[in-house]
Amino acid sequence: MIQLERVKKVFPNTAVPAVDELSFTVEQGNVCVFVGPSGCGKTTIIRMINRLVEPTSGSIFIDGENILQVDSDRLRRRIGYVIQQVGLLPHRTIEQNVGLVPRLLNWPEDRIARRVAELLEMVGLDPAEAAQKYPYQLSGGQMQRAGVARALAADPPIMLMDEPFGAVDPILRGRLQDEFLRLQREVQKTICFVTHDINEALKMGDYIVVLNAGKLVQKGTPMELLSSPANDFVKALIGDDRGVKLLDLTRAESLVADGSIKSPAVKDCSCFIDALQPVKMALEQMMKHDTDSVGIRRGDEVIGALTWAEIKKHIHRISGDEG
């Protein structure tokens, strides 16, 4: 668990604080995404959590321990850190890069070797092929994977990720995000994730902290953010397609739970989607098959149908002002 209490950072020779009296808590095992425009202080926040930047005032606690009273180098070895530019040591092999923190912690060599192989496997790199390569011999995506493996090496309970997928192309980014979410289900870390991409935030976050000019604007689940944005800034950040984004986060099953199985629509269905897929997929099917209703299947069983009218009603209900 990470707690920030009235944390403030004013950089020398600047009038405006980069981070202004910020307080929040990130619960154990959650992914908390910090999102906001450039210069909103999101990177400064996570750099204060591993003390690459010292706060001007306020306190930061990790599992109840005030980190400002811990030796900063030791602290960092307990916190995984991934940055956009990856920052692998160019003169060291991938094996040495990934084994960096365990070596700093004086693990025995055979344990490091086993851990590195395990991690490379976990992030989708072939240990036999990648371990002895140098970073320049890897592709951008492979480097980013090696960076994540390095951060996970000593199994830190906390991970700080600063736009980890910002430098790769959109297709690869989507794949890395999916892999990351799968990995997170496995490792259950407490993660602070920085991005300026609201779509990434909505996809990755258990919680989202929206920041502007060093101040917290809104904190909530992706659903809360979409259904009740705190102000125009959050609305603008989310964009004009709030309703569609909502439907992307809503599982089809949640709209048929109230027994629409009996609705006559189900007989007319010419296409089906899985209950776990987002409602957005239902819209896609409607467009593709030029129909107003889509059947919802769980496994082989048809559990109901979604109609265009119901989806519209749902959007109205949840966001009030959505025309």
């Binding site: 591993n50 602290l75 940055i83 530019q85 920052g87 960096l100 700093l104 700080l160």
Partner: peptide, 27 residues
């Protein structure tokens, strides 16, 4: 020596001396 390399080395928990001798000087 690229900033991000030094930054990552610090972020991994290398001491200032380790960053100098193991990263900056070799590079």
């Amino acid at each position: 020596v690229p900033f991000e390399v030094k930054e990552a080395a610090r972020g991994m928990g290398m001491t200032g001396w380790q960053v100098l001798t193991q990263v900056e000087v070799p590079l």
